[in-house]
Design a protein around this nucleic acid. Sequence first.
RNA 1: CGGGGCGUAGCUUAGCCCGGUAGAGCGCCUGCUUCGGGAGCAGGAGGUCGGAGGUUCAAAUCCUCUCGCCCCGACCA
Length: 490
Amino acid sequence: MADDKKLTTRAEDFSAWYNELVLRSELADYSPVKGSMVIRPNGYGIWERMQRALDDMFKATGHQNAYFPLFIPESFLHKEAEHVEGFAPECAVVTHGGGKKLEEPLVVRPTSETIIYHMYAKWVQSYRDLPILINQWANVVRWEMRTRLFLRTLEFLWQEGHTAHATHDEAEEETLKILGVYRTFAEQWMAMPVITGLKTNSEKFAGALRTYCIEAMMQDNKALQAGTSHNLGQNFAKAFELQFQDENGQMAHAWNTSWGVSTRLIGGLVMTHGDDIGLRVPPRLAPIEIVIVPIWKNDDEKARLTEAALRVKAELVEWTGRGATDRLRVHVDLRDGMRSGAKYYEWELRGVPLRFELGPKDLEKQAVFAARRDTRAKQSLPMDGLPAAAAALLETIQQDMFRAAVERREANSVRGIPSYDAFKALMDGAGGFVYAGWCGSDACEAKVKEETKATIRCIPDAEFRSAEAPATCLRCGAPSQAEAVWAKAY
RNA sequence: CGGGGCGUAGCUUAGCCCGGUAGAGCGCCUGCUUCGGGAGCAGGAGGUCGGAGGUUCAAAUCCUCUCGCCCCGACCA
C-alpha cells in the first residue's frame, strides 16, 4: 500500500500528523509508562545541538553550569505560598526508600527554585558574593493529566537558570537579557519567529513577580510557549532566608531570576517546520546537514561511486571555511539492498536539509545533484568549490526557513479585530494571533478562556505592538489597559 | 476524574452481528534478478486473539469482571 508510506496530512488531522511524524522520523517513542517517552537518537541529536548553542550563549553571558539533586524535601515546596499552590498538584512524591517509609517524603523536582535558593542562602553572606549566575541541565517531573510527545510529558529535559542579585534592577536586567538570548536562539537557530512579552497574572510562574516569555505560532495557528524568564523578586529569598549584608552593613534579601527552555522546543520545531512529507530541520540544528546518496547499477559502479561519495564527504568535512570547529556535518548512505528512491523518502522524512545524489552521470560531469529539503528544489553543483557552495546553500536554507515561518505567522495574525463576535468566530475556525485590547481584569481574561478557549499569550513588547494601540477591551469594551496577544495555546 | 472509542504477528488490520479452533498488507530472514524517486519473483520465520472467570461438545466471536491505550472535557513548560 503506497498510502501506508504517507503521513496523515496536516490538513486532514494536525494532531495525528504530529504524532505520526514524531514516531516515524524516530525522534521519539512511547515508553511503557503512560505519559513518558524515549527520546531516540534522531531527536536527541537535535537536542544536543540545541544544548550546545544555548550553553555557549549562557557561558558568553557569564553563567556557569552546576547540578542540583533530583530529590527535594517536601517541606521546601511549602515555604513559598504561591509556589506550592502551583506545583503541589503535579508533583511525584517518594514516600519509601531502602525498604522503609521515609520520615519526610521527597518530592521529585518539578523545578528547582526551592533547593537552589536554599543552597544559595548558605553560600551568600555579603554583597560581594553576588551575583550568582548558575544554570543546570536536568530532567524534571510534572504529573500531567494529558500528555503529548515532546509537548507535555511526565518527565522532560530542560535547562533552568537561577540567579541571585543585589538589586531589583539587576535581576530585571538579567531576566530580560535571557529573554533576549531565547529570542536569538529561536530565531537564528530554530528559524522559529517568536513574540516576546510579559505574562499576565494568571499565566505567570507560581512564585514569580513577573514572567516574560517567547511565544511561537505553530502551523495549526495555536501558540506554543517556547521559553520563559522569570523575575522572582524577593519571594524565594524571603522564604529561604537568602540574605546578604550590603555596602552599608544592612541586611537585605537577594533578588532572584529563573529561566528555562525544554525539550518541548523539539515539538515546536516539528510544528513550525514539518510538512506533509516529514520533518524539516533547520541546518544549524541538524545533526546531519548533508546526506550523500550514491547511485549504482552493478558491482563495478558500486565500488566507484562508494569511493567517490566518501571522497566528496572527506572534502566537505575537511573544509574549514566555516571555522575549524564548525565542520560540515555529512553522512554517506551506503546501505545496500535499498533503492535510492527509498533512501530519498527516508531522509526527507527525517528532515535532513540537503541531499546530494551522486550517480555515474554526476561523476562524469564532476558534479553532485543537490536537493533542498525545505523547497524541494534541485540543482547540479560542480565538485569544484563544492564545500563553499554547500555551506552557502545551507545558510540560504536557514534564512529561507525563517522567512517562510515569519510570513506564515504574519498571515495568521490579526490586528484591529472588529468585535468580540468576530473574535469568537475566528477562534472557532482558523485561529491565529489576535492583537487586541485588554481591560486588565483577571475575570475578563478568564471569561474569554471559558468562551473561546483562547488566552492572553502575552502583553507583547513594544516592537510587536500595533501602530495604533487598541482603545477598548476585546471582551468587555472597557478602556484598554494594555494590548494583548490572544490565541489558543498548547 | 466524567463522556466516547479501541485492544488479533514488529506495524496497519480482516474475521466478531450469525461460536466450529486465525487470514491479509507492510515490515523481517534467505536466494536470484534489480538499482537516477517508496523494486520484482520464489521460499521462510513470526500470533497462549490484552488478562481473568463464566456459558458451551466447542469461544477471537456470547456474558461478567479487570488491565491498558487513544480521542474529547477540568490542569499545564
